[in-house]
Design a protein around this nucleic acid. Structure first.
Length: 558
RNA sequence: UGACCCAUAGUGUAACGGUAACACACCGGUUUUUGGUGCCGUUUUUCUAGGUUCGAAUCCUAGUGGGUCAACCA
């Protein structure tokens, strides 16, 4: 490979390349994605997944999937399954079988015993309140617990009794013996084991003491010989703790590196807030197409490749950031433009009669499925004397630069003929009921010899063959980019009441009536849509994924 | 009243001591049987003040601003 240009590396890649140069770990790279199985994955997790998997892949390494299941209170098998499903859908396969922090409970217990034997851990009988008080504050040093001076033998006995279930929940904890005066609050003798007589989703009732995050994560990394433990910046204060345990235990030195979390406009990732949206029926579920969950984005029609590309383009650094939603949408359009099948659907139909088209005549027209991809083939379109077009594609009083249908003007029907509009019918309310047109019989798509060059082209459906369908149109879930910015207001105050609009009586071309859930389309001139799981025999439902770029509406605003 | 992290166009990210660039957004043009796509182009950037250096976005110091850290959560 010739390298006239140095590829730009993010700071994590630079660390890895330095490690590679120095021969660290013999060039072996192993990362990990460590979710707690207590909820559904969202866009923030997608970012972490991409960083961990892509970074490893780039350097010939692998990525472990490890469930950080050290708190039996919150964790469930249901989440284990959905997390695995979401990761695979995103396009990643982990190294071997999924692993669990709970696989290491025995080893972790031994680690704790060895720490006690070195005088580096002690059992504390203080109440949670007492422990909190003695911890001090960021600017006030903490104080030693009266139990800190217990003998090794006493600690060994008490810890074993804790393990054997001889004490009540919350009555005692095991603490690391570090430094109560450290400026880092987490180094002030962190709790490493607590008593919880609860059923664990995998180990059942085998244990009644469970390790805390700080005594499980680093050690799990070490046990698996993770070389690069990549996590978000909020764990940066944990790193000294992480390193302390590895050093004192004398185990494999995994290295933690922190990157800034990715925030995205109009999206929230707080589990508590997302749960509120679901429980209070602001959305229909965790996979509501408006949700920032992976399952929601999937149902919305965002391709996995687009999400991966988005995470890549958002980059990796250490500064706080908020990515514009337009970047995500650009990635989605970029992908879908290449892959989505084109189709014609009229969302708000108005009838058009072609008065000079023979009453009993019908035609089959041919339409390409994707102009970007000839291999996508073509499909048949029915055509006849009566069709429907979009109500907003006709104007009685057309402004300049209006290229659509208006009386006296010509406009092309996509894949069909050029029409000349001659007049309209209205009902008593002034609403247009029928538009009358004539067609140029020599202007058929592909064999047009009419010489007429209308500026506009409209999508349409044939009245005799169009099929009714439901279309769900989505807007941002919130009315402001960051609904959590104002502490004095509840984020629900910014819920967008118009985030879902259901169109019950749209008309689709016949070819769509067999559509399977998940299939992605570009409805010509409307945007990208995909078939929803709510679709049933004879009742197809579409979700709007994202609109097309629309320079006409900008023109109108001027 | 402590420690730690951060500061480059509107938003992100790059430039690794050699004179700021890429993407998205924006604006303009062009192509087009999707007002889509494609193509071309315009505008806009190193928090402040000192210092080191022939030379600083980059190194040092201070300041300013933002963020993070005290749950028997992860």
């Amino acid at each position: 490979m010739s390298e006239d240009k140095k590829e730009s590396l993010n700071f994590i890649e630079q660390i890895i390349e330095d490690d590679l140069k120095s021969g660290k770990n013999n060039g072996r790279i192993l990362t990990r994605f460590p979710p707690e199985p207590n909820g559904y994955l969202h866009i923030g997790h997608a970012k972490a997944i991409c960083i961990n998997f892509e970074t490893a892949k780039k350097y010939g390494g692998k990525t472990n999937l490890r469930f950080d299941d050290t708190n039996p209170t919150t964790e469930e098998t249901e989440y284990v399954d959905s997390i695995q499903n979401d990761i695979r859908w995103l396009g990643y396969e982990w190294n071997g079988d999924a692993v669990y922090a709970s696989d290491y409970f025995g080893q972790l217990y031994e680690f704790a015993v060895s720490l006690i034997k070195k005088g580096l851990a002690y059992v504390d009988d203080s109440t949670p309140e007492e422990i909190a008080t003695m911890k001090g504050s960021p600017s006030v040093p903490g104080q030693d617990s009266p139990y800190k001076s217990r003998t090794i033998e006493e600690n060994l006995t008490l810890f074993e009794q804790m393990k054997n279930g001889e004490f009540a929940d919350g009555s005692r904890v095991l603490r690391a013996n570090i430094d109560m005066t450290s400026p880092n609050m987490l180094m002030r003798d962190p709790i490493i084991y607590r008593i919880k007589k609860e059923h664990h989703h995998r180990t059942g009732d085998q244990w009644c003491i469970y390790p805390m995050y700080d005594f499980a994560h680093g050690q799990s990394d070490s046990i698996e010989h993770i070389t690069h433990s990549l996590c978000s910046l909020e764990f940066i204060h944990h790193r000294p703790v992480y390193d302390w345990f590895i050093e004192k235990l004398g185990i494999f030195p995994s290295k933690q590196t922190e990157f800034a979390r990715m925030n995205v406009e109009y999206m929230i990732t707080s589990k508590r807030k997302l749960l509120k949206l679901v429980n209070d029926n602001y959305v229909i579920g965790w996979d509501d197409p408006r949700m920032p969950t992976i399952s929601g984005m999937r149902r919305r029609g965002y391709p996995a490749a687009a999400i991966r590309n988005f995470c890549d383009k958002a980059g990796v650094a250490k500064r706080e950031n908020t990515i514009e939603i337009s970047l995500l949408e650009a990635c989605v359009r970029e992908e879908l433009n290449k892959t989505a099948l084109r189709a014609m659907v009229v969302l708000d139909p108005v009838k058009v009669v072609i008065t000079n088209y023979p009453e009993d005549k019908t035609e089959i027209l041919h339409a390409e499925n994707n102009p970007e991809d000839p291999s996508a083939g073509s499909r048949d379109l029915h055509f006849g004397r009566t069709i429907y077009i979009e109500r907003e594609d006709f104007m009685e009083q057309a402004p300049p630069k209006y290229f659509r249908m208006t009386i006296g003007a010509d406009v092309r029907l996509k894949h069909a003929y050029i029409l000349h509009c001659t007049g309209i019918d209205k009902n008593q309310d002034g609403e247009i009921t029928t538009i009358y047109t004539t067609y140029y019989s020599d202007s058929k798509s592909g064999e047009d010899v009419s010489g007429i060059k209308p500026k506009g082209t409209l999508h349409w459906v044939d009245a005799d063959n169009a099929v009714p369908c439901e279309v769900r149109m989505y807007d941002r879930l919130f009315t402001v980019a960051d609904p959590t910015a104002d502490d004095s207001k509840d984020f629900l105050e910014f819920y967008n009441q118009d985030s879902l609009k259901v169109i019950k009586n749209a008309l689709m071309e016949t070819s769509l009536s067999e559509s399977k859930p998940g299939t992605q389309y570009q409805f010509l001139r409307q945007g990208y849509f995909c078939t929803d799981v709510d679709s049933a025999e004879g009742k197809i439902v579409f979700n709007q994924t994202v609109g097309l770029k629309d320079s006409f509406s900008k023109e109108v605003k001027k």
